[in-house]
């Protein structure tokens, strides 16, 4: 399903590709989900055992918190809400291909934005926890001619982080498109038999693994900038 919009703003036409529209669909869906969970949590009583749905939510929250604690340490548990949001958004976005939409992460603007957020967080918390002096001194380690290499190495982080997610999801989208075109030439009955295996690999497996890697690398980058 492709939903594309052309926005008329100040006499100028702005083309919104379907990935941007899908991003907003996901944002609305996750907001509704968050409101629903909030209502359920408020209604729940502390003395009772948690019900089936709330149990699942608690499992999710505790999983994210224990992952953040084991990767970043106990003092950086404040990053858990951001990491959890990132994981939730990326999982839904990567699995959106299963519903017949284009996954938003196959548009380079989405992974690059998320990687830029990680980059800004890394620099901000690096300066905040180490102090500006020792932060800038870190670029001249181990000796001063390494300065340009260190700067390039720092700038390459968000690019490699975003390309990894983007390349994996986009290659899945392209291969699934080629496969569907080829099977449509052959016969219309064959497609539902053969494609589920490829969907399981390119959408479910690659999507979940890439989400995990993205949040893991985000946590590693931030805690590395804060610690040493």
């Amino acid at each position: 399903m492709r939903i594309e919009l052309i926005l008329n703003l100040f006499g100028r036409e702005i083309f919104l590709p379907d990935t941007i529209v899908n991003t907003w669909i996901i944002v609305v869906l996750l907001s509704i989900f968050a409101f629903y969970v909030n209502r359920q949590v408020k209604k729940a009583r502390v003395e009772d055992k948690p019900s089936g749905f709330l149990n699942f939510i608690e499992l999710l929250v505790e999983g994210v918190e224990s992952l953040v604690e084991s990767t970043m340490g106990k003092d950086k548990l404040g990053f858990a809400p951001y990491i959890g949001t990132l994981a939730l958004y990326l999982v839904v976005a990567n699995l959106f291909g299963l519903l017949g939409f284009t996954p938003p992460t196959s548009d380079y603007s989405v992974p690059f934005t998320l990687a830029l957020i990680t980059f800004v967080l890394t620099q901000y918390y690096g300066i905040k926890s180490k102090g500006a002096g020792s932060y800038f001194k870190g670029f001249f380690e181990p000796f001063w001619p390494m300065f340009p290499l260190n700067v390039i190495g720092e700038l390459a982080n968000p690019i490699s982080l975003s390309f990894r997610l983007f390349g994996n999801i986009l290659s899945g989208v392209i291969i699934m498109g080629l496969l569907y075109t080829a099977l449509a030439q052959l016969s219309i009955i064959v497609a539902p038999v053969i494609t589920p295996v490829f969907h399981a690999y390119f959408d479910v497996f690659a999507g979940v693994i890439q989400t995990f890697i993205f949040i893991m690398l985000t946590m590693v980058f931030i805690s590395m900038a804060m610690d040493d």
Binding site: F163, R164, F166, G167, N168, S171, I209, F212, I213, M216
Partner: peptide, 23 residues
Amino acid sequence: IRTMILGQAIAETTGIYGLIIAI
């Protein structure tokens, strides 16, 4: 398994660069 997947993701980067150029 967690460490292995993280290391493999880093090793994958150069391959992804080639893929992006091909695309």
